[in-house]
Every structure is written in C-alpha cells, then in structure tokens.
Design a protein around this nucleic acid. Structure first.
Lengths: 111, 111
DNA sequence: TTCTTATATAACTAAATGGTTGTTTAGCGA
DNA sequence: TCGCTAAACAACCATTTAGTTATATAAGAA
C-alpha cells in the first residue's frame, strides 16, 4: 500500500519559488553577511561591493519571501535574517556538494 | 571573537547552482514521482503529462547535478533519486512555507 | 534490412532574471 | 528653507531558462 503524500502542482510552485530565492550567489552573500547580525543597506553595499540598487533589490526579494526582516532607524533600514531555517538549509546543500567532490575545494559551510 | 566560516564567491556560486536545480516545479514533480522508485522516461512522461523532450531535459540537468542516477535497460533508461538529501531539503522548505501561512493550503510535505 | 519504440539532442521562442543607470522619496542637520 | 545622505524604485539591457518542435541516435522486433 503506497503512501500518497504528494504535493500538487501549485504547492510545488511555492516550494520551487522558495528555492529560487536561494539560487542566486549574491543573495547568499547577503545572507552570509547578515549571519553576523543585522546590517543596514549601506553597510552591506560597502562590505560586499555591490551597488546600492542591487542590494536593495535582493533585500526586497528576500523580505517579501519572509527570509529577512526590516527595521527602519532614521534614514537607515536594517535588515536581519528572520528565519533560521536558512542555515541548516544551506548546510545541507554544502554537505551534498562536499560529498560529491570531496577532493575539490573546501565547502565547510558557515553561512 | 567572531567566527569566520564564510564561503567565498565561487563556493556560493556552487551552492546557488544546486538550489537552482530545485527551483523549478517540473523538476520537483519528477523528483516526487521518483520518490516511489525508479522510472524510465516514458513512464514519467505518461504519469506527469509533460513532453518527452522536456522530461529528458530536466532529467539530464538533475543527472549532471548528481541528484538522479540513470541505468540503461534495453531501449529504456531508468532514473532514480541518487541522494536522499533531496527529501529533508524539500521538507525544510515546506515546513517554512507552512509556518509562514499556516492558514493557507496544506503543505504536509512528502516528496 | 526495415520498422518501431525509447531516449537524447539541437534549434528556436517567449518569459524571467540579475545588474546597471537614473530618478524619487524620506529623514536629518545646517 | 536647502542641502545631504539612505534607501527604494523604475526603466532598460543582456543573459538565462523552460518549453516546444523537429531531428537524430540507439536498440529491439519483424
């Protein structure tokens, strides 16, 4: 007797959309930076060397996906990781990558 | 004293590339189908209602990412999930989605 | 060999995406 | 008020991507 815990297409679209958020290296860079604690946009721009518009765009995407939170302080806007599921999720992928090419460069994950 | 287990850009590109594989609902559908056991291309085509070319393309992408394995049997080619990290990974995302909009449709994950 | 079935692949199209540039909005200090 | 700075946003471009159609390759059957 076969288990049928299958997701329908709409549910899979939601799951896929969530994975898509993490499928961009620049966004992962931002998340990695936020791992150390909240930062405002300017700090991220300086730290990561991306343009302000680009950082803002990525932050908006992650904010709408409820991956980061925002708090306005004066003219600055501070972003923080709002869901710690981010870290084990990335660690799992890193583990997989490590398993695949153990020989290759270190990927001891940290984000 | 701050921990610095940060990944460099190249490593993040690899992680992002892995997430990208999972960022498509059709590929998730295929993985969900393969959860019940290996299938050949034709079976997947029939079961999922996608075109043969499309299924083949997605399978190739996942095969190259070492997410599925392939075994030729006569003219048929059987694919199977080759790394069980797929399931907990998806479950984690589903859990997140459930947490976010608990009110909304069920996402008791299964893939 | 010829026919048929199974899979892969190539070429193409439409849509989505990341990044840039320029502009706009908002808050603060002089 | 007038700057000045921070962040968001809009418009645009180049690239990527999913899917389709058509073709090629491969293996078995007649």
């Amino acid at each position: 007797m076969k288990e049928k815990n299958q997701l329908d297409r709409d549910a899979l679209e939601l799951v896929a959309a969530m994975f898509k958020i993490f499928s961009d290296a620049s966004r992962l860079e931002i998340l990695q930076a936020l791992k150390d604690g909240p930062s405002n946009v300017s700090e991220l721009v300086d730290q990561l060397g991306m343009t302000q518009a680009n950082v803002s765009k990525h932050l908006r995407i992650m904010y709408e996906a409820k991956i980061v939170s925002r708090k306005k302080e004066g003219t600055a806007v501070f972003y923080a990781i709002s869901d710690d599921f981010v870290f084990p999720l990335c660690e799992m992928v890193c583990q997989k990558l490590n398993d695949d090419h153990q020989s290759q460069a270190e990927l001891e994950f940290a984000i």
